[in-house]
Simulated assay, not measured.
Amino acid sequence: MTLAREAETATKSILRAACQQAGIDLRGAELIRFGENALYRLPGGIIARVSRAGQVAAAAREVRVARWLESHKVPAVQALPGVEQPAEIDGRAVTWWRELPPHRHGTALEVAAALRLLHDLPPPTTFDVGRLDPFVRLAERIDRAATLTEPDRAWMRKHLAGLRARWASLPGGLPESVVHGDAWIGNVVATDDGRVVLLDLERCSVGPPEWDLVSTAVKAFTLAGITEEDYRQFVGSYGHDVTQWDGFEILRDIREFRMACMAAQVAGENPVRHPEVEHRLACLRGQRGARPWTWTAVP
């Protein structure tokens, strides 16, 4: 049994215990995605989300953020009402959500509109949404990435330390706001019933809104995943071009490094993904030429 299969089996066991605890029907549960979190489709239009270990506090905050956004009529994934959330099983969090209607990834224009709506909200007063930590879990991912060589691991640790130092000297920019925290195009979707919906709220916090904007810039100029015209429309809709800010390269480099660390985590569970880790690290080291680079998505 592969590490990935073992992890899926353990996750299903955790989900079963949580559903029994909450009185939610597990029969016919279907695994939708197994990545940073495991997502299952349950009967009755319910989506269950099983976190990795140590993320109970983040899951609890995500539920509170979702309910706060719903109260402000900001379209976002909705936590299932009438259920105490999250359930904690063996140090892992299980949360339940309303299933969305059929949907697609948002366009750059739709992401801009969703972020503008979020960033214009005053921070919540009934709970502590926390402060943005752009380095959350990176050291852990490096330590646990089983396919990394020790020289690669040492380079990543040194690079992480350098990024932390640069973040500490981040220049001033837009007024701080509530930020999504992981605002790439896949975390904003357009539904068939005409809504543009924010997903994956676990990194919502207070911080520089440029952190959310840099994800679309990276999509355009690091990965060539959208066109320059798409990016111009994004800027026009939101009203700010993060690439013209003095702190852009700091945030861009952190975001790119987060993507490399995520690939390393995935490869630790599924070693067939390791060549992608090597490729991303070579790009960051300047061994694959100038941006844009071609990076293959990992689950």
Rank of each mutant, 00 (worst) to 15 (best):
T147N: 09
E6G: 14
F135C: 03
Q20N: 12
R98W: 11
I14P: 06
P171R: 08
N37W: 06
L118R: 04
G130W: 03
C283I: 04
V196Y: 09
E229W: 12
D133V: 06
T294Y: 10
G207V: 04
A18M: 04
I14S: 08
V214F: 11
D25E: 12
T95C: 06
V111P: 00
D25W: 06
H159A: 14
R92P: 08
P171L: 11
G207Y: 00
R285Y: 03
V83C: 09
A59L: 01
W245V: 01
A267S: 03
E62V: 07
T222G: 14
G23N: 03
R116G: 11
L3G: 15
L284G: 04
L163S: 09
K12G: 11
A66W: 09
R195A: 13
A114S: 14
R273W: 14
A22P: 00
P123Y: 01
V83G: 05
S13W: 13
P292V: 07
L199P: 04
Q233W: 13
T296E: 07
D128I: 08
F34P: 05
A161L: 11
C261P: 02
A7H: 15
T125S: 15
K73M: 07
Q20S: 15
R131I: 05
A260L: 14
P209D: 02
T243E: 03
V272A: 15
D200V: 10
T11F: 02
A264C: 08
V188T: 11
G82I: 00
A114D: 10
K158Y: 08
R131C: 13
C261I: 02
A165L: 11
N270P: 01
P101T: 04
T2W: 13
S51Q: 07
T216F: 02
G286M: 05
L148G: 05
C204N: 12
E70W: 13
R252Y: 01
F221L: 09
Y40W: 06
D120C: 05
G35Q: 09
P299R: 03
L121F: 06
E249L: 09
E249H: 12
L100H: 08
R41K: 12
A29C: 10
D192T: 10
K12D: 12
T107F: 06
A114W: 09
G289R: 10
F221Y: 12
H159N: 14
P101V: 01
R33L: 10
K158L: 14
L115E: 01
K158Q: 15
R61E: 00
V188F: 06
A146Y: 08
L132G: 03
D25A: 13
C261K: 00
A112D: 06
T147M: 15
A76S: 07
S237F: 11
L69T: 08
N37G: 01
C283D: 08
T191C: 00
R166T: 04
D143F: 07
A10C: 07
Y231F: 10
Q265G: 15
A145E: 10
A161R: 12
P124D: 01
Q85E: 10
E269M: 12
R280M: 03
A267G: 02
V50T: 04
A87P: 00
H274G: 11
N270A: 15
A165N: 11
V272L: 12
V111L: 08
R144Y: 08
P43D: 02
G186A: 10
V242A: 00
G23I: 01
A168V: 02
A224F: 00
P81D: 05
A220G: 02
P151E: 05
R285F: 05
R164I: 04
A58I: 02
R131V: 14
N187T: 07
L138K: 01
D182Y: 11
A87D: 05
C204L: 10
